Simulated scan of single mutants.
Amino acid sequence: MTTFLSHLTLPEAVFNSAPASILLPIALGSVVGWTTRPKDTKRTYFTWKQPPLRPPPWLFGPVWTVLYGMMGYAAYRAVTLGTSPLNSPATIAAANHGATLYTIQLGLNMAWMPLFFGLRRPIEATVDVVAMLGTNAYLAWLWGTQVDATAGWLLVPYVAWLSFATYLSAGVGYLNDWDLSDKPDVGGAKKL
């Protein structure tokens, strides 16, 4: 079990402010989304072979915005309620441990889009999303059972979406032979 690692954890001020806690993941996700060139990403998305049930590209922005807000609010609740001096040392430790895990998963989340669309590395992106899924499933359990049930439940839609994202990431990788790079085919045309 990872413990609280202050150098790997967002500052306490972020967790102690509901607006900061909610807006930070939304802002970071927006910046990452825009820096991966949305028009290019959308065009690329349609050129790769896709697994069944893939959603339309316009759906990702609104879904991620809602999920980022929910995860930010979950972090705010878990850390502020869980680190109250009125709590047991075990609850405080669980809240702090969760804060470190939350920060790590946020970093993993911000890495996925550049890995998948920017660097076109589906294997690494799929490993990243699997790590995110496992971390968040554990985090939902930890916060939900040891700190604040509401915080745990707020992460459930995120865990469900990460399960679906894992399917999509692995599906695109597999259907495209784990190679998303631009390569000329035998006739000289570009293969995406």
Rank of each mutant, 00 (worst) to 15 (best):
T44P: 01
I26L: 14
P55D: 00
P57R: 07
T44Y: 14
R37K: 12
I26C: 09
P62R: 10
P62V: 14
W34I: 06
P51Y: 02
G29E: 00
Y45G: 03
T35C: 08
T44D: 14
V63T: 15
P25Y: 05
Q50P: 06
F46A: 02
G61D: 07
D40K: 12
T35I: 13
V31S: 08
W48Q: 03
D40Y: 11
K39G: 01
L23T: 04
W58N: 06
K39W: 07
V31K: 03
L59K: 04
T36Y: 04
K39L: 14
P62D: 10
T41N: 01
W34D: 02
S30I: 08
K39E: 12
K49E: 12
R54G: 07
V66D: 11
L59R: 07
T35E: 06
R54H: 08
P52M: 03
F60P: 05
D40T: 10
R54A: 13
G29Q: 02
I26H: 07
T36C: 13
T35N: 08
K42Q: 12
P38I: 10
G61Y: 09
V66H: 12
P52K: 02
L53H: 04
P51S: 00
L23H: 02
T44G: 04
S30T: 15
L23Q: 01
R43E: 13
D40S: 13
F46C: 02
T47P: 05
P52H: 00
F60K: 03
T47E: 11
Q50W: 06
T35D: 03
R43W: 10
G33A: 14
W48K: 00
P56E: 01
Q50K: 14
P38C: 08
P55K: 07
R43S: 14
G33Q: 12
W58E: 15
A27C: 11
K39A: 14
K39M: 09
V32S: 05
F60H: 09
P56V: 06
P25A: 01
P55M: 12
Q50D: 06
G33Y: 14
K49V: 06
P52R: 06
V66T: 15
P25C: 01
L59V: 15
P51W: 00
K42G: 01
W48P: 04
P57L: 07
P51L: 05
P57Y: 11
V66R: 09
Y45P: 00
L53V: 09
